[in-house]
Design a protein around this nucleic acid. Structure first.
Length: 574
DNA sequence: GCCGTTTTCGGCCCGACTGTTTTCAGTCG
């Protein structure tokens, strides 16, 4: 059973929960939570390093003790300290901790006063009306818990791109309130996370009460969770939770920084402030009573001796150290993208002709696209056979003779078969400008076989770009258990490339994968995988993910001009 | 449990809102 960073992080999170229930030192609890976050954000599997006999790198918040626990988990798949903690806490008590309104103190109270140690027992205690016997539990909490127990599917994360749609109309609604000067989104949305748990809206306005009132009465609000003079929180009909804060203008920069997070990044910055005798909160940066910064984010960073750091980097995964030493990446922007190397047409499962897709690409400011329809192997896609691909090649040649359009490169999205072979004959693949290859089936192979499968595909003489490398669908299909390091090393060796697919549900490579690609010197193709003319807009989301992965223009294949790109696509024959 | 321009001990980010209370603990972000 291979141990992933995610598994290690889950163990540390569970230990934090259990320690909290036992009233352990709160700073010890925090140490476990912080460690979980650090491990989760590692681009490389810690397992690989440990099994290769490498020393564990120095990771923030992981000292000798937690380092030893990581080694134990990797080697044995177990953690004795976790098992010991579990023996002291009734199974099921942890579940209560994750209900809204319940923290460690109230969970302990429920256990001690009512013997409630599971969701089932909590439900029964509520049904019998016994909850109100406990000090600190009143009718409101009772109702809230009854709902949470009856309806356990709350708090699901939403794709950022989906949340963006719901957020846009709410922002327009609030901007229309008289006296409102700005409405901005902070939080994990601003950091460009691929999914968001909620939306943090910051507003500066002359009349806070009117903003809260307008928020409460927004027609998509299904339930107001909290509302005060400067804050409110509601759940929309879409299920999306929105937290609203109204701020005085001089605090805006400090608040934007504070509510953009991440939490780990904020704590790091505040501690730096502390060492300089500064107090940093959402209202500003203070030395004693005196405000010394806070109107802009730049001023907050400057107060601790740092340049402004892009929100996408603020995960405390090295950005503060990079900022301090003047080594922040010059992050890629959408306008640097000159072409799109993964585009479909109505010849297979797209909904527009090649001409229409090329016209849309021109409107999106692109200088070239690659037409990469599906190969025949997938019957459902009406994939191209040799004859139809032949005709498409001729059609592209004719189109390219007409001036004033983006240049169309001849490509294919070819299936990587179970054994790693490509699903079209070499004679045909050899006539194309590029071959985008992808896994569309046999997802269930072991990590070792899946990796070997992709390595064999990369070794193919006409292979150019590995498309949506892990085949994940966020929230639906887990990423293939690949050894991404070996795959990237082979891509580097063979002069091949890896794709960051911009479809919101894929965003594959992920941020950690992008950083790994940079480390291996493999260029990333940020591609829309467009199936409709309007899909070129998806590139924006791909660029956001790339920025989270620290990519600069030079790390991205399709920032090249067509003239610069062509030699990179020309493969040396094996 | 981690960490060091306060370095091997003694700190550890900070404020708003809720629900219950009658001055505040707990939760949340």
């Amino acid at each position: 059973m291979p141990v992933h960073n995610q598994d290690i992080a889950a163990i540390f999170d569970e230990m934090a929960d259990l320690l909290e229930l036992q009233q352990a030192n709160p700073f010890r609890v925090r140490a476990y939570r912080r460690a979980a976050q650090t491990v989760r954000a590692q681009p490389r599997e810690l397992r690989d390093r440990i099994e290769a006999g490498e020393p564990l790198p120095k990771l923030p918040g992981i000292g000798a003790d937690l380092g030893a626990k990581i080694a134990e988990i990797v080697h044995t798949g177990r953690c004795r300290a976790l098992e010991k903690l579990k023996r002291k806490v009734p199974a099921g008590l942890e579940d209560l901790l994750h209900l809204p309104g319940l923290g460690p103190a109230r969970v302990r109270l429920l256990r001690d006063e009512l013997g409630v140690t599971s969701l089932a027992r909590l439900k029964s205690a509520i049904d019998k009306g016994r909850l109100r016997e406990v000090r600190g539990f009143g009718p409101k909490l009772e109702t809230r818990l009854a709902e949470a127990v009856a309806n356990p599917v709350t708090g699901r994360r939403m794709l950022r791109a989906v949340a963006a749609q719901y957020t846009a109309s709410l922002i327009a609604h609030l901007e229309a309130v008289p006296g409102v000067s700005q409405v901005v989104v902070a939080g994990s949305f601003r950091r460009g996370r691929e999914t968001v748990g909620d939306i943090d809206l910051l507003v500066t306005a002359r009349n806070p009460a009117a903003v809260v009132e307008a928020f409460r009465s927004y027609d998509e609000v299904r339930e107001v969770l909290a509302a005060g003079g400067t804050r409110a929180s509601a759940r929309l009909a879409s299920g999306l939770q929105v937290d609203l804060r109204i701020l005085p203008r001089p605090s805006f920069g400090a608040a934007l920084h504070y509510f953009t997070g991440s939490k780990a990044h904020n704590i790091h910055v505040r501690r730096m402030g502390q060492r300089r005798g500064l107090k940093i909160n959402e209202y500003g940066v203070f030395r004693g009573e005196r405000r010394v910064a806070g109107q802009s984010e730049e001023s907050v960073f400057a107060s601790v001796g740092l340049p402004w750091i892009a929100p996408e980097l603020r995960e405390d995964t090295g950005e503060i150290e990079a900022a301090r030493s003047g080594r922040l990446p010059d992050l890629i922007e959408r306008r640097a993208i000159r072409g799109d190397l993964h585009v479909h047409t109505s010849a297979t499962d797209g909904n527009a002709t090649l001409e229409d897709m090329a016209a849309a690409a021109a409107r999106a400011g692109l200088e070239y696209i690659a037409c990469t329809d599906h190969s025949r192997y997938l019957g459902a896609y009406r994939g191209l056979d040799e004859g139809r691909l032949e005709r498409q090649i001729e059609a592209i040649d004719r189109l390219n003779e007409e001036p004033g359009r983006p240049f169309v490169l001849k490509g294919i999205e070819v299936d990587i078969l179970e054994d790693g072979a490509l699903a079209l004959p070499d004679a045909l693949l050899g006539r194309l400008d590029l071959v985008v290859a992808a896994v569309h089936g046999h997802f269930g192979l072991s990590g070792r076989r899946q990796t070997e499968r992709l390595l064999r595909a990369i070794d193919h003489p006409f292979f150019t770009i590995l498309s949506h490398p892990t085949a994940r669908l966020i929230g639906e299909r887990a990423p293939l258990p690949l050894d991404l390091e070996r795959i990237l090393a082979r891509c580097a060796e063979r002069g091949c490339f890896i794709e960051l697919n911009s479809q919101p549900q894929r965003l594959d490579l992920d941020d950690a994968g992008c950083r790994l690609a940079v480390a291996h010197g493999v260029l990333v193709s940020i591609a829309s995988d467009a199936h409709r003319p309007e899909d070129f807009a998806l590139l924006e989301g791909g660029v956001t993910q790339a920025r989270r992965g620290w990519l600069e223009d030079a790390n991205v294949l399709n920032t090249r001009t067509l003239a610069g790109l062509r030699p990179l696509l020309r493969r040396t024959m094996a």
